[in-house]
Every structure is written in C-alpha cells, then in structure tokens.
Design a binder for these strands. Structure first.
Length: 660
DNA sequence: CCTGACTCA
DNA sequence: CATTTGAGTCAGG
C-alpha cells in the first residue's frame, strides 16, 4: 500500500527516509492539473521511487478534487525531507516536474539532475521521433509494459478527467504515477549500462550538466513588452481585414483564405492554374507557387497568410504575458541540437513587416525583384515571368532586419522581447559556425589558412579555391553563390537535383560544379566519402564529442549533416556550461539559445566586464577550432542590434593625453 | 538537411 | 459528435 493517506503518512515517510539514507538518489514524477507551471497549474500529487524498480514506490496526493488528500503540513514535511537528504533526482522529462516542485519549495539547483529521456535520445536510432515514456517503454519491453498507460488513459477519458488529471481520485492517478516511476527507473538502469557500453559517458555528462543550465534559463524567462503586443495586435488585425476584404472583392465571393482547397477553386474560377504541383500531383498554393502567379490575388493571399501566422503564432500567445518561459529540449533532435517548445523561441522572425502598401519607385521595384528571386532560388524555384506593378506592390509588406521603431507602419515580433529593468539584452553570435566545424573535419594547410584569417567570407574563399577565380572576375558573384550552395548542400546532404535548382542549372552541370569544388576544397571529398562508407558498412558514426548516430545505410549521406550539426551543437552546449559557471556569482543570466547564438541579460553594473569575457569563453573550445563570436547589444529590444562597445566612464578618461 | 506551431481535411 | 492524424505551409538554424 503506497498511495499515502493521512493515516499511513508517518510510516510511509519514515520508510522513504530510510531508503534515501541508504542511497540518496530518487526517481520522481509529479501529476498536475495542467502543463503550465508558470501560469495557473499546480501539482496534485508527487510520485517517488528507488532507482531499483523492485524497491519502494509511493504516491503522495495533495490537491485531488476527489478522494483523500494529505494535509498541507505533510507537503512541507515531504519537501523538507527531500531537500535535506536527496542528492540526485531521476525523472522522465525531469525539468517539467522540477518547475512544478520548485514552486512547492523544492531545492533544485543544489542537486544532481538526471533526465532519462536525454539518455534515451543518446541510444535510440536517429530516425526514432517519439521519445515519450510509453512509446519508449513499448519499444524496450513490449506492449505489456505499457498496458497500464492505455488502460488508465481510457478511464481518464471516459470520466472526462483527461483535461485535468486532478479531477481523478488518488487511487486511480496514484497507481498510474507509480507505474510511470517504475518504468522510468527501469529505463534509467538499462540505459545507463547502454551509454557506458557505447562509450558515450562524456557526452552524457555534458547533457546531464546542461539539463540544469536549461532549467535555469527556462525558469528565468524573458520579459515581454505587453503594451507593444496589444498595440500590434490591433494594427495587424486591422490590416488583416483590409487584405481580406480586397481578396473577397477580387475573387467575387467570400471564402476561407486559409484553405488551400478553396484557394484552388477561386483561382480556377478566374482561369488560373498553379505552375507548381504538390508531391501528390495536386496544384500547390505554396509561396513558391503564388510567387509565380502574376495576379494581385496571389500577392494578397501571401500577405494574408503571413498576417494570420503573425497573429496566431507570434502575438496571441504573448498577450498579457509579462515574462515568457519556454521549454528547451535537449532530447528533441537526432543531431544533438536543442529545440524549443511552448512557445518555440528559436524561430522568431528576424525581419520586420510593413503594414501599409505604398507605390514604388523604379529603384524599389528592382530591389523587390531581386528580393523575390533570392526568396525563390533558395526554395529551389525559378521565376518565370515578370510581375505587373499591382502585384509587385503587394511585396512592399516584406521587411528586413532594419526595424525602425519610429515608423508606425512597421511591426517587429522581436520588438516584443525586452530586457528587465536595469538589464540589457546582449546577443553572442558565432559567425559561420557550421562551416568552420565542417572544415575542421578535414583540416590541412589550405583549410587552416582560411580558418585562421579571422573575419573572412568563407563562400568567397571557397569560390576562389574551387573555381580559381577572384574578386576581379566579372562572374565572381555567381561563383560565390555556387560555392555557398555546394557548401550548404554538402553539409545538409542534398543531391544534384536539388543543388541544380538552387544553382539554376541542370543536374549534370551541378555535378560538374560539385566535382570542381571537392577538388579545390582539399580533403572535403575524402571526408565525405569516408562518412558515407562507414555508415554503409556498420550503420553508425560518432561526432567529435562521442555522440553516436545510428543511421539507415540507405541514407548514409545524412551522416555528414549529423556530424557537422551535432558537433556544432555539442560545442555550444559545452561552452554554455562554461558561461553558466562564469555567471554563477554575477547578476547576469543566459536567457536563450538559438543554435549558433546565445542571448543573455547583462546587468548595467556588469555591462563593461561581462560581454568580452563571455565572448572569450565562447571562442575557446576543446576541439581547437578557430571560432569568431560577434557581440551585439539589443537595445531597447531584440529587434535592434548594435555591435558591443565598451562604454567609457568619464572619470576613468585620462584628459591629460593629447589625442590631436 | 534539422526543428515546432498552426491550419485544414 | 468529438478527437486524433497526416499533410501542407512557413518561421528559424
């Protein structure tokens, strides 16, 4: 009997105390009334267990809407015991549970945190997407091991308790929670062995420490300018209905502009078919298709989609939110990158948007034409006709990174993100990180010369090496573009077909460019071939941090991408531990990570000292790759970036020096 | 190539 | 009828 009641509490907590005394490591899982610890959700009960899953498991119910809850003084007693005696917590997606427990007074930061889902990621096949507890249990131990989950979910649903688990009685939810604890413990022990056996101890240690750093970032959150959110919500809604009305007018009827099927009907009504097909052969109404339709309706639909997306993804979730807390997953990707959820703060638009259509000068039209062809070529499309003025005009809503806060017709999503009082947001951005890591895999004299040039344009250097041209050549820009496409194509593992689309040439021609590139970029071909050969033979490779990738030999080319992206990711994770350690006794904090950059809040009193030190910490690395980090101050918001400069305090200036 | 959020069907 | 699922689209790297 280990659904704890008021009557058995003393005996149960004594039993718990004695197992912690023997081994101060505890598996933990909380049940809650929702998924948002920083909004109104709370725990309704706490499950604990030994890592030996045949040992003790208990469920302490506190806030169920039916059945027997423990009195609140008992919650205090339990938390006190944990704070005093436990050294390590083990959990499945552990940060989630800890955010809730933190609010109940649990000491998190002085403990060792072990997230089993992170361990599972290190061992699973790279193609495995669903790492949730029950699918993982099923993969490892079969259907029987997770039957309890299926059964309980059925009960919860039939009673309509599935939206809010605290509606269920402790007898139902407690048993369920205990079984989750047991399954977590079993996975922990098994995966610990697997990680040791595959010699991934180092990368696991990195991930284990990273878990706490991410936890701190999530808890800190980032401040939102709620006034600005309200302001642009209104502006965008108004603009959206203007656009909507014009779409209805042009198409002669009202319809759901979000529905591709209905867009198809409207276009066929005015005798237009899409120049692009979906993989299934239907008419596509994607951006790449709409761009090629010389009709104002196409431009307005693009605009409508963008405005809708802004509202639903980037504005509504922020309304009335003073501080936004994301969740970083260090188990979400097959390469080892982080991902960010609810909300995703790693895909906030960089560019601003213009809400007012204006007539364009010839210069502006040409600017837009080149913007369109750039957009189109990166998506592998070609532009097959010139657009008339009324269509071109619909493009005036596309902005760039130069947000102007005084222009009331511009809106920027990054403008929502502001520093706390007495802080500045400072961005630290690796320049060409993945290219540098790629080159580091086949370092030789030629490559080292490029890597050590400092702030260099890699694509130009690659063009020079591969095609024997220099800046004086008339066609240098084309060659540079080709080199850039091949570098990224190789890193991403695209084929000649897709490469030829990006280069706007035939696959055969693309193959020729690629051959030239590999010959000029000494060592790159050997590296590429070696990766493909290894994956094809034995089905796995390891990156520079020892992270193992199990890859389907039919897609062996993916290996290069995994190595480059994964090594970059692990390198940044490793540096984040150093930065976190450095900031421990400071007022400043890391807030976000966006794959090749971190964003920190730096206290005014530390603004001269900290940015250069973080820059140095990020540039150092155990792989000896020459890395360049740009430091930019984001003031007054994330929308505006200015290169960092030391601010000189007047009393430190030596006025006796004659600068003339 | 690697993601996550939203919408429709 | 409510809920889940896959595809399509688009934001970031």
């Amino acid at each position: 009997m280990s659904i704890v009641t008021n009557e058995t509490f003393q005996r149960d907590i004594d039993a718990l105390r004695s197992v912690i005394e023997v081994e101060p490591i505890l598996v933990i899982d909380v049940e809650t009334n929702g998924l948002e610890p920083y909004k109104n959700n709370q725990i309704c009960g706490i499950g604990v267990g030994q890592t030996d899953y045949l040992g003790l498991t208990q469920y302490y119910p506190f806030r169920h809407h039916q059945g027997e809850n423990l009195s609140s003084d008992k919650l205090t007693l339990l938390i006190d015991l944990l704070n005093k005696s436990v050294k390590s917590y083990v959990g499945y997606n552990l940060k989630f549970d800890l955010h809730f427990l933190d609010r109940e007074g649990l000491d998190v930061l002085s403990k060792e945190l072990i997230d089993v889902i992170v361990m599972v990621r290190l061992m699973e096949h790279s193609d495995t997407k669903d790492l949730a507890l029950t699918p993982t249990g099923k993969r490892n131990y079969g259907e029987g091991a997770i039957q309890y989950d299926i059964d309980t979910k059925k009960v919860l649903r039939s009673n309509k308790w599935n939206k809010d688990f605290s509606m269920a009685p402790p007898t139902v939810l407690g048993e369920y929670c205990k079984k989750d604890v047991i399954l977590t413990a079993r996975l922990y022990l098994d995966y610990l062995k697997k990680i040791i056996k595959t010699k991934q101890g180092r990368v696991f240690e990195l991930e284990r420490q990273l878990t706490k750093v991410l936890y701190k970032m999530e808890k800190q959150g980032i401040s939102i300018d709620t006034d600005y959110a309200q302001q642009i919500e209104k502006l965008i809604t108004n603009r959206l209905s203007e656009v909507e009305q014009e779409i209805y007018k042009l198409s002669g009827k009202e319809f759901n502009v979000s529905s591709p099927a209905q867009i198809g009907e409207v276009f066929s009504g005015i005798g237009i078919e899409s120049p692009v097909k979906t993989p299934k052969g239907q008419d596509s109404w994607s951006e790449a298709a709409l761009v090629n339709i010389n009709h104002r309706l196409a431009g307005l639909i693009r605009q409508y989609r963008t405005l809708e997306k802004l509202l639903s993804t980037y504005i509504e979730p922020y309304m009335g939110t003073e501080v936004m807390h994301t969740s970083f997953c260090n188990w979400g990707t097959s390469t080892g990158r982080l991902s960010s959820r609810s909300p995703n703060l790693q895909n906030i638009p960089r560019n601003h948007f213009n809400l007012k259509e204006r007539s364009l000068s010839e210069d502006e039209k040409n600017e837009i034409r080149s913007k369109i062809s750039a957009t189109v070529s990166t998506k592998g499309m070609s532009l097959n006709q010139d657009l008339s003025d009324d269509v071109l005009k619909t493009w005036s809503f596309v902005g760039d990174e130069s947000y102007d806060s005084t222009n009331i017709n511009q809106v920027s999503i990054r403008r929502l993100f502001i520093p706390r009082k007495n802080y500045s947001l400072v961005g630290f951005d690796y320049s060409q990180m993945e290219v540098r890591v790629f080159m580091s895999y086949f370092r030789n004299k030629t490559i080292d010369e490029i890597l050590n040039k400092g702030d260099v344009d890699f694509h130009s250097e690659a063009a020079k090496l591969a095609f024997g041209v220099d800046e004086s050549s008339e066609r240098f820009k084309e060659y540079r573009q080709a080199a850039k496409a091949i570098t990224f194509g190789t890193i991403y593992g695209i084929g000649n077909n897709k490469l030829s689309q990006q280069l706007n040439t035939t696959p055969k021609e693309a193959g020729k460019y690629k051959k030239q590139y590999f010959e000029g970029m000494k060592g790159s071909k050997d590296f590429f071939d070696e990766v493909v050969r290894t994956v094809a033979i034995r089905g796995w490779i390891k990156n520079r941090y020892g992270r193992k990738y199990r890859i389907n030999p039919d897609f062996a080319y993916k290996g290069v991408n995994y190595l480059v992206q994964g090594t970059s990711a692990d390198l940044l994770s490793e540096r984040m531990l150093k930065v976190d350690n450095y900031l421990e006794d400071k007022k400043s904090n890391i807030l976000l990570q966006v794959h090749d950059e971190i964003i920190c809040e730096v206290h005014d009193s530390e603004l001269n000292e900290i940015p250069p030190n973080i820059q140095n910490l990020l540039q150092e690395n155990s792989l000896g790759i020459p890395l360049e980090v740009d430091v930019e101050v984001c003031n007054p918001s994330w929308a505006t970036k200015v290169p960092f400069e030391l601010s000189i305090e007047e009393d430190k200036i030596d006025w006796t020096i004659d600068w003339s």
